[in-house]
């Protein structure tokens, strides 16, 4: 009898303590959101359907968006987000052709300057009525420029494989 009473009392006391602690020590801001935002590319391209990366991170933290939401981030970002959220996802379903680059078809470009205004990383150079060009190193392959082009002169291409970037294939499993 004594044992039952004492254990019950102990349980109630500890439970109350936990409840109080949860209320008073609660973290005001969600640190997960900031961490998730750090994982996202931060180019605010809007391909995920959110206005910018901060909003996407908030949605991810609330569990309202899938880790696969970021096309420019590709598989690496998906993996990182899933690991941060502790979600297991089947990555084989995620298509990843590697990093992409925007390419201007010079014979169609009219030099309207619309694309260079929307590029989130200022990767497009070109003056009015001049053929535009894309700085490879700065392009994130987000594709924001594609929709703006009135003549459909911009396309996305996989980044060409060069000698220093070539990777040995993983051995086939016997």
């Amino acid at each position: 009898m004594l044992a039952v009473v004492s254990l019950t009392a102990l349980g109630i006391a500890l439970g109350t303590l936990l409840g109080v602690a949860a209320r008073y020590l609660a973290v005001e801001e969600n640190p997960l959101e900031a961490e998730l935002q750090a994982l996202l590319p931060g180019s605010q391209c809007g391909q995920c359907g959110f206005v910018g990366c901060a909003q996407a991170a908030a949605a991810l933290a609330r569990g309202e968006a899938s880790p696969t939401l970021c096309p420019p981030g590709g598989r690496a970002v998906t993996e990182a987000i899933a690991a941060k959220l502790g979600i297991r996802i089947d990555l084989s379903a995620v298509r990843d052709d590697g990093p992409l680059l925007a390419v201007v078809a010079e014979e169609i470009c009219t030099g309207c300057c619309r694309c260079s205004k929307v590029c989130p990383t200022d990767a497009i150079i070109g003056a009015a009525k001049q053929i535009h060009n894309i700085i490879r190193e700065a392009c994130t392959g987000c594709g924001a420029c594609l929709e703006r082009c009135p003549t459909e002169a911009i396309g996305l291409m996989p980044m060409p494989v060069t000698l220093p970037h070539w990777i040995w294939p993983k051995p086939a499993v016997a």
């Binding site: 931060g42 180019s43 605010q44 981030g73 990093p99 590029c119 989130p120 990383t121 200022d122 700065a138």
Partner: peptide, 17 residues
Amino acid sequence: RARLRTEAGRRLAEARL
């Protein structure tokens, strides 16, 4: 390389904003 690229992209985006 992808990480550096993403970081550079982020810097550029921030600079643009």
